[in-house]
Design a binder for these strands. Structure first.
Lengths: 153, 153
DNA sequence: TTATATCCTACTAAATTAGTAGTATATTTA
DNA sequence: TAAATATACTACTAATTTAGTAGGATATAA
């Protein structure tokens, strides 16, 4: 499971992606309201995202946050990893949170590890090719579908 | 990430699967030693696995645990779910640990949910077709590969 | 200079996970 | 039938992680 922190981070980045063209910083309080994220918590998250190089900030009145990279360049897998969430099911197959499996006699010959490796690869394959733009695109498609489904009633 | 409990459960079931043909119960202390699992913790886990219908037990001296189903019928996804681990990355796409997403205006139109749904399906596809037997088979193949790799040196 | 924003350190609170203690109960074997 | 040995089960405790907050420092615009 992803942490709330990670989920909030993704939602906040999506909100910034939506107004990417405007080149205007968005206030934390605005993002918090739009995405229903606790304000102070979001503050900590945005700070983190800045340190990780996802967003830039402007201080003072009229300040706020904005995306540094194009929404097409920000991949879901990057955001997840940067905000602390390992994608793998076990530490012994995690690229970024690797830990040796204390019980295992030999990791190379572990059947469970072998399966979990396959799951990790399948997950990463999806997450690393999906950008913020892709998510927004999905959203548009879903909205269209949803509207049609409703008119049919 | 899977819980240790889940990992231990899988390992213990694999150990039982290896001697499935013998039709003899295996003691907790034996399993604990083979798999390097804290004894008392494993006790609680085995009890749980019995309540969930994965294993049977025999009390008293010469007692122990044994698989109730054939190792081919016990799927990884079942064990993971039974021992408390959700497979999905977010509660809003979890089959067995579903929770509404408090922040979401509409789950049906959520782009993030849509991606995470895809990841879940990919993971479940693998986990629900992999049985204990399959894992043991993988182990054998890996051992063979490993040996060859070593002789080549 | 005031208002308003981010920056940043340091907490606290809640929840979850990992693991243990100790006793009751069942079964084999001498 | 008593001793030995196993699981059954309840009820904890300890450690770790996650979620979220407090409050002051710093920067900027009007």
């Amino acid at each position: 499971m992803l942490q709330k922190k990670t989920k909030y981070a993704i939602k906040a980045l999506l909100t910034l992606a939506k107004v990417y063209k405007d080149k205007k910083p968005v206030k934390i309080s605005e993002i918090a309201e739009i995405d229903h994220i606790p304000r102070k918590f979001l503050e900590a998250i945005m700070l983190d995202l800045r340190h990780q190089g996802f967003v830039g900030s402007k201080m003072g009145a009229t300040g706020g946050y904005y995306l540094i990279k194009h929404p097409e360049e920000i991949m879901l897998s990057d955001v997840i990893r940067a905000t602390g969430g390992p994608i793998a099911l076990l530490p012994c197959v995690s690229l970024n949170f690797y830990e040796t499996c204390a019980e295992c006699v030999s990791e190379e010959v572990c059947g469970l590890r072998n399966v979990v490796l396959e799951v990790r690869d399948a997950s990463i394959k999806i997450l690393s090719k999906t950008s913020l733009s892709d998510i927004l695109l999905r959203e548009k498609k879903l909205e269209k579908k949803h509207k049609i489904a409703n008119t049919k009633r």
